[in-house]
Simulated assay, not measured.
Amino acid sequence: MIGVEDAGRCVMVEYLVIGAGPAGLQMGGFLHRAGRDYLIVESGPEPASFFRTFPRHRVLSTDDNSLFEGVPFARYSKRSFPSADDLVRYLEDFARPLNIRYGTTVTDVDAYQARHVIVATGQKPYLPRLSGIEHAETYATASTDPTEYAGKRVLIVGRGPSAFETADNISSTARLTHTVGRAVQRIVKDGTEFVATIDGTGELRYDRVIACTGFRRDTSLDGPGVHVLSGDSIKAIRHAARALHRSLEAEHHGVPWPHRRLRNRPDALAATIATRASEIPDGLADVVVTQGQHALLYDEMPTTERNGFVVTRTQVRHYRRNELLAVERRLHRKPLERFFSEQLAVPCIS
């Protein structure tokens, strides 16, 4: 058990989840439905603190923002590029039945002597090691009012979503807008102007410089025995959370990993894998273990599994007791059928 200090009293819980963003809420949802003893702690006064600020222009890049076993996000917005405020409302409603303590900052995981700690603290704005970057405004602080850039020459440092989002917002009013990535070598302030040295171009002058160089995960709470839960999108987060929850359930509560039976024949395996491969999230793998006349398919496991057929988005690897026997990268039915036929040492079925 773990002790969490609360106004002078110690509350004991089995699982401590740090962070009430999409990752922490998704894990909390799984623990809640499994009937586990858990607590989510969040430093802010509300859930989804990241999405209350970002993206700055309040438009999301995708509508694929549903969490597992919750109301579909489409109930909150029908737009292909919905408002970030819609996502905040969605996450607030998802969080409502969960056991969350707000206004609780964790600075030292070891202080809690936790048996099961899950760090789901999300990302923070990132600044690269670039000479003169301190002269730039940042994506987090630059004005989102396009009229403030009217007639200005603006350099946007970065080539990711935040950079293009910012460029699109000011392009109609700025005199010129340059979006440059790693080619920026140095930024020097010269009076009211900025001189940027750009590889292959030379020195160019700008009126404003905005650093839109993305985000990095906060690693300050990482350590031995701590489970880290993160992802580059809500889709990746929800699948990673489910895989971690299934691992914890199997290891600590004796709950078998969900699986289904397939016919142990090359044509049946090839048909299933050809369909499944494109659906498997990055960082996870389906695992197929043959057993006589049948094969068991365990979906979306951590890729450390080293037995049977390990299927990712890009290839199928055949292991036997951690020894790699063969690899197939053509994930179409006919090549897969030939691969399984060879590996199972049975004829192809036409």
Rank of each mutant, 00 (worst) to 15 (best):
A120T: 12
A120L: 09
G122V: 04
G122H: 11
G122R: 11
K124Q: 11
Y126L: 12
L127M: 15
L127N: 12
P128G: 01
R129A: 10
L130D: 09
S131K: 14
G132K: 03
I133N: 07
H135E: 11
A136C: 13
A136V: 05
A136L: 09
A136W: 02
A136P: 07
A136S: 14
E137T: 01
E137C: 00
Y139N: 14
A140Q: 09
T141M: 05
T141Q: 11
T141N: 07
S143T: 14
D145H: 09
D145T: 06
P146R: 01
P146N: 08
T147P: 01
T147Q: 08
E148F: 04
Y149S: 02
A150L: 05
G151Q: 11
K152T: 00
R153C: 00
V154F: 08
V154Y: 05
L155M: 12
L155W: 11
L155Y: 06
I156T: 09
V157S: 05
P161M: 05
S162M: 04
S162P: 02
S162V: 03
S162E: 12
A163P: 10
A163G: 09
F164K: 03
F164G: 07
E165H: 07
A167N: 05
A167I: 04
D168T: 10
N169L: 15
N169V: 11
I170S: 10
S171F: 13
S172L: 15
A174T: 03
R175L: 08
T177F: 02
T177C: 14
H178P: 00
H178N: 12
T179Y: 01
V180E: 09
V180T: 06
G181S: 09
R182G: 09
V184S: 02
V188H: 06
K189Q: 15
D190I: 01
D190W: 04
G191M: 06
G191F: 08
E193M: 08
F194A: 01
V195F: 07
A196E: 07
I198W: 09
D199Y: 01
T201D: 07
T201E: 13
G202S: 04
G202H: 12
G202C: 06
G202D: 11
L204K: 15
R205T: 13
